[in-house]
Design a protein around this nucleic acid. Structure first.
Length: 653
DNA sequence: CTAGGGTTAG
């Protein structure tokens, strides 16, 4: 078990001159022969244009350009830079025309600059025009073009072009490889480009780029984005040299691919590294994510302290992650406090706060924060709407949600995405307005994806609607045949309706594809250590004690009116057997463990990987009353706050 | 001219 280690010293040595080399010239590659280095005395107008550019007076610079018969390469370099800063495509085109007129169109240095400029200005057509227009293509020109294609989502084109580059006799360099790898993950194709990525990986090794940290880190990141944790960790472990970025990439890989524990563990290893490796804000964001996923609030508070000591507490992404950490760990007040202390807030930090309130079931509060954001003149992002609609959904605020959904188009002139539709279906479905939810899908102007149908199926599960569930699952089985969750949901719906033949049929579908139901798992943090419990777990060292505890508890509760919700058990077995299965649910084990291993008055915080089942929910309500304990359970959807026999979700989840 | 990061999610 990873225990947090001592933070490295905060103060860094800085006796040495920070710059060991004099500032180099911008680029070492071919400059135009007319460049100022070869022709020291250039005209006054050239000087004038250059200084106007440096002062940011682009319009005047362009005006002066018309009066200069022989602008130099350097003059054009500065003009191009100015157009980028001014974000003016029309001026860029003007300058470009004049540049061609002056015979610089075959200058690879300026072509590279032009490509970068048009990329910044978001015009891939002009990028292509520049590239097509130049025959003297240096590796810089190729790389700039690849970068532009990759960043604009045209990564696929890169793979065709690499052949042309080869036949031009130009060899890919370390920069080319990073762009190629990025193109694999950045391309929007229906088929995965993972095989392509592996192919490039082989090239990288064969051509001796293994010592290059940038290339190798990009490889780690590529595998991470394809969800190939094993491959990523292999590349990482084989890297001859690693720096903060490589470590951060690997930690992020774990955090993003459902391996939060490994993320924290790797962070611990990073702190122990002897080299002067100091985690930075980017590292901390991923570590905080890991902590939030684990619900490890004690570890999280240590990290918060570390962040304060390191002075990283003014970095926006770090604060947003802290807000989320506290919210997801159940300490909404602390999240709010962090949020309130922010000097400047961007849309992401507002979103974090909105969703924080949402997952705790404070829908009205979430809408309040959303409104406050608008008052602060922060434009909502698509995620703002997902957050606030999700909040409405958890609190059953149907009308408010409807209004917000309409405001997406009406007030913010944005188009609702599938995610937004999924939120609406969830909102209506949960509120048992299944027909309206189905109608939303019917009237959708975009293709309802798996998220939308999934939201409908989930609602059918809550309200036991077999007929609609069959319709939704039929579509889902087509759209994502290998998602076990969909089969399980349908089976649960059949089981609740006592349609055992159908349950068997769905289970067979699952087995035929060798898919498995995700097994339930709950965990709890005690003295900075995580203890996890699985639903069928005879190897757990505490299991006998916990079972005895639960059996006793269940008898006491039965005297007080508790009736096991045996309908949630998906097996056709006796009532007695069902009760036994229910008592073995991971969440109850975690609650029992928490009660045994914490002191009175201490809040018990549990995290679960699936949705809370009805029986666990009602048992936890009982326990909160009889043991007089506050219990927080975070399931996949939201946070349940149990106190005095009631849950904050109002039995609506 | 290069690499890693925040908010949402049935």
């Amino acid at each position: 078990m990873w225990v947090f280690c001592q933070a490295p010293p905060t103060i860094q040595q800085s006796h040495f001159p920070l710059r060991t080399r004099p500032p180099s010239r911008l680029h070492s590659h071919t400059r135009h022969p007319t460049s100022s280095t070869l022709r020291p005395s250039t005209t006054d107008t050239n000087h004038q244009i250059q200084s106007l550019c440096k002062k940011g007076h682009l319009q005047q610079a362009i005006k002066a350009l018309t009066q200069e018969p022989k602008p130099t390469q350097h003059t054009y370099e500065l003009l191009i830079f100015s157009c980028t800063i001014a974000n003016s495509l029309s001026d860029a085109i003007k300058v470009n025309h004049r540049l061609i007129h002056d015979g610089f169109d075959q200058d690879p240095f300026l072509a590279t600059k032009l490509i970068n400029m048009y990329m910044e200005l978001g015009s891939i057509q002009y990028v292509r025009q520049v590239f097509d227009g130049i025959s003297n293509r240096t590796i810089y020109v190729w790389n700039a073009f690849f970068q532009a294609l990759t960043l604009s989502g045209h990564g696929m084109d890169v793979f065709d072009l690499i052949c042309c580059m080869n036949s031009d006799g130009i060899k890919p360099d370390r920069f080319t490889y990073t762009y190629l790898l990025k193109a694999c993950v950045a391309s929007e194709t229906s088929v995965s480009l993972l095989p392509k990525g592996k192919e490039i990986h082989a090239h990288v090794l064969r051509h001796g780029f293994e010592p290059n940290v940038h290339v190798m880190t990009t490889l780690v990141d590529m595998y991470a984005r394809f969800g190939c944790v094993l491959e990523a960790s292999y590349v990482f472990s084989e890297m001859p040299t690693r720096n903060v970025v490589s470590w951060s990439a690997m930690i992020a890989c774990y955090a993003k691919n459902g391996r939060p524990f490994d993320a924290l563990q790797l962070f611990g290893e990073m702190l122990l590294e002897v080299d002067d490796l100091t985690p930075n804000s980017v590292t901390m964001v991923s570590v905080l994510q890991g902590c939030a996923a684990l619900g490890a609030i004690q570890q999280g508070k240590l990290l918060h302290g570390y962040i304060l000591r390191r002075g990283l507490d003014s970095v926006l992404p770090v604060i947003a992650s802290l807000v989320t950490l506290y919210a997801r760990c159940g300490d909404l007040e602390m999240g709010r406090r962090v949020f309130d202390h922010m000097v400047k807030r961007d849309v992401v930090s507002w979103n974090a706060m909105i969703s924080g309130y949402g997952m705790h079931g404070f829908g009205k509060k979430a809408i309040e924060v959303y409104t406050a954001m608008l008052c602060n003149k922060i434009a909502p992002s698509p995620i703002s709407f997902v957050s606030v609609l999700g909040a409405c959904s958890h609190s059953g605020l149907v009308d408010e949600g409807r209004r917000l959904f309409e405001s997406i188009t009406k007030d913010h002139s944005m188009r609702p995405t599938v995610e937004h539709y999924a939120c609406m279906v969830d909102l209506l479905g949960r509120a048992n307005r299944l027909d309206e939810a189905a109608k939303i899908i019917q009237d959708m102007r975009i293709e309802p994806g798996p998220k939308v149908w999934g939201a409908l199926l989930g609602s059918c599960r809550i309200h036991g609607n077999v007929e609609l569930a069959e319709r939704a699952s039929k579509r889902l089985f087509e759209l994502e045949p290998t998602n076990a969750g969909n089969y399980v949901l349908l089976a649960e719906i059949y089981a609740e309706a006592q349609l055992w033949d159908e349950v068997q049929r769905v289970k067979k579908l699952l087995e035929a594809q060798e898919l498995q139901k995700k097994s339930g798992c709950s965990w709890i943090e005690v003295k900075r250590k995580i203890y996890s419990f699985a639903s069928v777990d005879e190897f757990n060292p505490h299991i006998e004690q916990l079972h005895a505890f639960l059996i006793k508890l269940s008898m006491e509760m039965k005297d007080q009116g508790y009736r096991p919700e045996t309908k949630v058990v998906m097996y056709e077995v006796t009532e007695e057997e069902k009760e036994r299965i229910l008592l073995g649910h991971s969440e109850k084990l975690a609650v029992a463990f928490g009660l045994i291993n914490s002191s009175r008055g201490e809040t018990i915080r549990i995290t679960k990987n699936l949705r809370l089942c009805e029986d666990c929910h009602s048992v936890t309500k009982f326990v909160s009353k009889f043991a007089n304990r506050e219990i927080l359970v975070r399931d996949v959807n939201r946070i349940h706050h149990f106190k005095d026999g009631v849950c904050s979700c109002g039995d609506y989840w």
